[in-house]
Amino acid sequence: MDLDFTIVLRYYDALLIGLWTTVQLTMVCIALGCALGFVTALGRTSKNFALRAITGTYVELFRGTPVLIQLFWIFFCLPLILGVELSNFISATIALTLYMGAISSETFRASLKSVGSEQLDACIALGLPRSVQIRNIIMPQAVLRAVPTLLSNCVSLFKESALVSAVGMADLMFVGQNISNNIARPVEVLTVVAIIYFVIAFPITRAVTFVERRMLIRLAI
């Protein structure tokens, strides 16, 4: 078998555009998903039964089904039910945001639990209003504790985002697959695509260890 990796260089531009789409989509879904995840975690730890039921159902549904089904469902079924056309970028964003929200809410839920009741006692003894307790004490501590797991969640999302190629979104995976089909060089092209994903994901997984060691130990939280 004759391997020629230089051939991939010719499609450098297209791959870069695909990567940019992947990165954009991932960043948007991370930002929206984390916010959704935090609010969902607050709902799941709430005293209100209805809130707990709604957020719990959402999280379990999205944790318990394949991302590909979620994506297809939102791309194909949701427009039928709502009667509106959704672009593949919008439906991919909705699907991945909901997925990120579900997995990160579990991360936030664990970190919220780890903010001890003693911290709340201290807040009350200092007369801090509830909004200040959440904004200045509970949220920063919960977020800091969640950072290592959240980074892993982000890496998962970045990798899972390759699924959006299945609804025709021109992300890195989609572009790579097209090039490899067109020039019939699957080994070279798909290997390079895999390496690109790895080169981005690997430093983030390493950062998890770094964050745990440096930041969390210094603050002992």
Partner: peptide
């Protein structure tokens, strides 16, 4: 309090 309860962050 007994356990200081300073805000660690």
């Amino acid at each position: 309090f007994q356990h200081y309860t300073l805000f660690p962050h």
